[in-house]
């Protein structure tokens, strides 16, 4: 087994199912950690997070749905594939509402399991990539001063330098300097790129993300940008 193989967490109170599923996933090239008690998984949430979790819905103490809610509450966005031994429709509907990526009805085939895990792995990689891009953007944005963040938002709204100057009560020449610093600090090569960056900060106002178990927080400058953008757009509409 390669050390860099994707890690899957299997959570089922039935030891035999845990062992068998784990054996198959290892045979097809995944690394696997098994848990017969969901609490043990929650305790290890930040230690080498898996690429996806395969979790039984019906378990004593903490069931699969409660586990997923606790994971999300703790900031974990690891995709979940549910296993179920019941066709109880309300439970299945609730699982999908909670954000289950897939639902496998026991007994399922090896092909069904591998396909579900492959889809979850792809989804996890895509989400991970998007999260990494967002954190990279936050790292650039946190270099901006509050005034530069304000200028970035106003410029992204399409205001000319002289209008920006009037808005923030300064000279056009000073705005030009701020604008140059904004483009440099954000490494934006064009106005279009700056607009995309600002829009992303506005459309994803999440306060923090966890990346490889490490928490990254949204910088203050990003909040300033969002506040200015919201104010400008509401004024335009009015």
């Amino acid at each position: 087994m390669q050390d860099d193989a994707p890690l899957v967490a299997v959570i089922d109170d039935d030891t035999a199912t845990c062992r068998a599923v784990s054996r198959l996933l290892e045979a097809v090239g995944y690394r696997v950690r098994t848990y017969t008690n969901p609490r043990d998984y929650l305790d290890e949430l930040d230690v080498a997070p898996p690429i996806c979790v395969l979790v039984d819905i019906l378990m004593p103490e903490v069931d699969g749905l409660a586990l997923l809610r606790e994971m999300r509450h703790a900031g974990s966005d690891v995709p979940a594939v549910f296993m179920t031994g019941t066709g109880h429709v309300p439970t299945v509907v609730e699982a999908m509402k909670e954000g289950a990526l897939d639902l496998l009805s026991k007994p399922f085939t090896a092909d069904a399991l591998c396909s579900a895990i492959a889809r979850a792995t792809d989804s996890s990689r895509r989400v991970h990539g998007e999260r990494r891009d967002l954190v990279d953007l936050w790292r650039q944005v946190e270099k901006l001063t509050p005034r530069e963040a304000e200028v970035a938002a106003l410029v992204a709204c399409g205001l000319l330098n002289k209008h920006v100057a009037m808005r923030i009560g300064t000279k056009e020449k000073t705005v030009k300097v701020h604008r140059g610093r904004v483009m440099q600090k954000l490494q934006a090569s064009s106005l279009a790129e700056l607009v995309r960056m600002v829009d992303r900060l506005h459309s994803e106002p999440i306060p923090f993300v966890k990346l490889d178990g490490v928490e990254a927080r949204r910088p203050r400058a990003a909040d300033i940008i969002t506040d200015v953008l919201t104010r400008e757009r509401s004024q335009k509409q009015a």
């Binding site: 039935d14 035999a16 068998a20």
Partner: peptide, 13 residues
């Protein structure tokens, strides 16, 4: 259902 699932997984593995 539990043992049937385990059997399917073990056979494939």
């Amino acid at each position: 259902r539990q043992p049937l699932t385990a059997i399917e997984m073990n056979l494939s593995a």
